[in-house]
Design a protein around this nucleic acid. Structure first.
Lengths: 111, 111
DNA sequence: ACATAGGTAAGGACTTCCCCATACCTACGC
DNA sequence: GCGTAGGTATGGGGAAGTCCTTACCTATGT
């Protein structure tokens, strides 16, 4: 169990436009932000993001994010685990996650 | 002459999602890259970007970029000047332009 | 004055994206 | 076994994005 799925691309095959696209949608940005704040384990089950979306829409966004190399999904029996590819992203796109963090901070109210 | 147009927002009113959206399109990323490499003056007339687009499509993309706070357009008689809001962007979204530069480098062939 | 060239605006065709409802499938608890 | 709950796949409706053509406007050059 806990097998990662296929469709988790090599980050070297991902271009800047693809990650920008993936992060351009508020819901997806929120998911990344959410994974960033759970700093030590950076994971969560799908329902824990508290987004105003149906389950199928959430599935859709997670698929887009997986295709863009942002996250990895692992099946855990019934649930699924979403893991941010933090170190890989930091290495491949330095500064990107800092921008996401900044967006989170600003949305949180301070400005 | 050389009046900046209206519709050039305060960068504090621009969110992370908006800039990511604006940079997510290859043509627009190319324009920013192009403006970045002309490092000392960061400007150019509209036709100098060498994009496979009609003039009206280019106008459209420049408008999107203006609305997203990436560039300022000034009318110079017949031509228009496009200026990247470099310092402002660096202050508001630190690291963002570095990512664009990286995208340009990678597209240029090296990797 | 005239033609030309750069830029814009409006409209339509086409595609892509976003979201939902539905149906289904698999694990878990009883 | 049965119900329930989390996740996925599919399809459709609607919105948004992209690109072009056409028409127009203004400045430049002759």
């Amino acid at each position: 169990m806990a097998e990662p799925r296929s469709r988790h691309p090599d980050l070297n095959a991902i271009g800047m436009a693809a990650v920008f696209s993936a992060l351009a949608h508020p819901a997806r940005a929120r998911i990344v932000e959410s994974l960033l704040t759970r700093d030590d384990w950076t994971a969560g089950n799908c329902a824990s993001f508290n987004l105003p979306l149906s389950r199928s829409s959430l599935t859709h966004h997670l698929r887009v994010m997986s295709d863009a190399g942002l996250v990895i999904q692992r099946d855990h029996g019934n649930r699924c685990e979403v893991v941010l590819r933090k170190e890989e992203l930091d290495a491949r796109f330095p500064g990107l996650l800092d921008l996401v963090r900044q967006g989170a901070r600003e949305r949180a109210g301070a400005r």
